[in-house]
Design a protein around this nucleic acid. Structure first.
Lengths: 210, 210, 210, 210
DNA sequence: AATGAATGAGTTTTCATTCAT
DNA sequence: AATGAATGAAAACTCATTCAT
């Protein structure tokens, strides 16, 4: 049995197929949600037979869990890079831009995540209350210190972070709506959003002239 | 057969049961998504038998569709109230507050909507490209005019609207995450968010001193 | 949902269908064992569709469990009737006869039980170590007292009981073999066994002439 | 292909692996029955890969069939040894003891056999109606002759044999039940059974004083 | 209006067996 | 000989929907 991620010694084919399945599953899960997706869809998307897919993964649940685990690293990376020693406003703005790039380049990951949270995070709560919360707490403290030092305007760092997440991920998660509303302007939506958001957050963070 | 709620002549009991079912369905669909929800769950939630529920609605699809239709009015109301003749920054800030209140008071509606858009809006695209887009276009024009007149800072009205939607709905749609990250501070999340967001949007809109 | 035996208020149809299914399941499980039986077989045997069968029972496991529970009463009855106040040898011989009649009249019940024990009693251990063991302990004490009083030959009551179980149930459980070996004499196998076993146990129990 | 163990010319390794598989299969089949066992379990038990196992045997069915064939010799041996020229009661008692030893030393073989008969002997009927029946007929005739000669009490030899089989195999086949009922006395169950059964059969066979 | 009963079409998963190397 | 990979057929179970009363 080549089953389960446990086995450390993977053959080339195993690595390739596992990757193939994860990609297909990401596509399907991100679009239809966990319950709305079928193994059949994923198998078809991956060009495999259903039993063959189940040769690599123990079941639907496992694929999903592994996708979410896999996702977390990439998901936390932009915030991790926020440098306590950098120039505060530049740091935060750069973070916003990195998040926006992720929304542009990895919209399926964003939707997968959103789908999960939306339903109460039943299969991912641990990661949220664990690593994610820890990281947020850490970086919120950094922002707080900047705020306290007067380097940026007084601000609630948690709600700032939520605003950044919300505004950037919106372009991935609500793309169906965004694209329709922007119609012909949709092509440049990420550039426009970049302009808009960087301006928005810079204004918010700039210390008052006082 | 009194089938399908379409029939205009409803008895009182019909109206009550229909309402009961819609409420139950909202709860269930908002939590589990369309595919993740079963008629059984909705019937149980509503305290009805499954066949009895289907006496009032033609099927799962219809309940969902009607929920979304029903939802739209409430959903558009806050933006509709944006008054072209009001004081620009106050108007927009008030809009933000109304949206935030909706996230607080009608989180299930918000999640139902988010679920739908997230999956590509397959059952609601018409309403988005129709009434919703029209309204947005209209109000975006108003904001544009304020911006052109120098009453507010230069801004892309569409992306402003997206930012408002994103930041406010975030508190409903991502509540599972927000609550965990804020832990003991979660109780005041809407008040804190109100402070944060009103400040954020005011700063952004305030015309430059120049 | 009319599911699960829990519901006390059963309709006539429910009682009939439940009974019908139990009978069919007994037939199938007794012949093919738990794992060797399929819900399809049981449904076909009962003249129902598979989902209809599952409307009455929550699953294969539940049908099996309920059969075994149901079975226990009937299974223990012959031993329960062993009367401490009766004439020892007659009492025991009568018990042997009752067990033999059960092997003749309820061979499927016997095989269902045998199948389960044979596989280590995974789904029935509780009942064995509970009610069954209690009853055996009680009656073994009775037999022991007879033995101690010299009313029957000195004997290990537990092993006597095992011998009774083994010899009588053999005609049900190993019928396939018994019938072949006895070929034309097979028709009278239960009468012949009755003669043989009553003589065997009487001889064993008769106190020594000493 | 060196497929199928039928080929007479086996290398040493082939013989060893075949033996290894048979041992593993016996363990598994005896515990879970034919249908309840999977090739995977057997392969794992044998420390082989599934395809490798199937290199030595043509399929699940074949392993099972060969096990049963293999089993028959050992199974008939105790009865074969019953010597028409020996002292009747000693001969029969010795047979009982040999059977009881088999139940103690080869319980899996006993259970495998029991499982098969219990399910109507679908895969072994031939051997029962052939060699087994022949042997039984032969030895039953011997016992009959002893009985007719007054060397042992009048007795139905077939039912005597059934009683011997039943009582001895019971300790292997129903061990799950026996052990629980005897609890702390279970350790000596075979010694106790030996006492009990030898006494039981001796008493039954002893010609009446008359 | 209401509900117990029934079912066809899935959906996940298992498993004996085969393929390719 | 041996094994990683693959699959068709089945099996358990689910669910939206319909039937009958």
């Amino acid at each position: 049995m080549a089953r389960s991620a446990a086995s450390k010694t993977q053959t080339r084919i195993q690595r390739e197929k596992t990757e193939l399945i994860m990609t297909a599953a990401l596509e399907v899960f991100a679009t239809f949600g966990y319950r709305g997706s079928t193994i059949d869809q994923i198998a078809t998307e991956a060009g495999l037979s259903k039993p063959n897919l189940l040769y690599y993964f123990d079941g639907k649940q496992e694929i999903h869990t592994r996708l979410l685990e896999h996702l977390l690293d990439r998901w936390l990376a932009p915030l991790k890079s926020l440098d306590a020693k950098g120039e505060p406003i530049d740091e935060i703005t750069a973070y916003v831009m990195r998040k926006l790039e992720m929304a542009r380049d990895f919209p399926r990951e964003s939707r997968l995540f959103a789908n999960e949270i939306l339903q109460g995070a039943p299969r991912i709560m641990e990661q949220i209350s664990g690593p994610l919360k820890s990281l947020v707490d850490e970086k919120a403290a950094v922002i707080k210190s900047w705020s306290d030092a007067g380097l940026i305007a007084p601000i609630d760092p948690y709600h700032l972070i939520f605003s950044i997440w919300a505004t950037t991920q919106h372009y991935a998660d609500f793309d169906a709506q965004v694209s329709v509303i922007l119609d012909h302007r949709a092509a440049s939506r990420f550039e426009d959003a970049a302009m808009h958001l960087s301006e928005m957050f810079r204004r918010q963070l700039r210390p008052s002239a006082t």
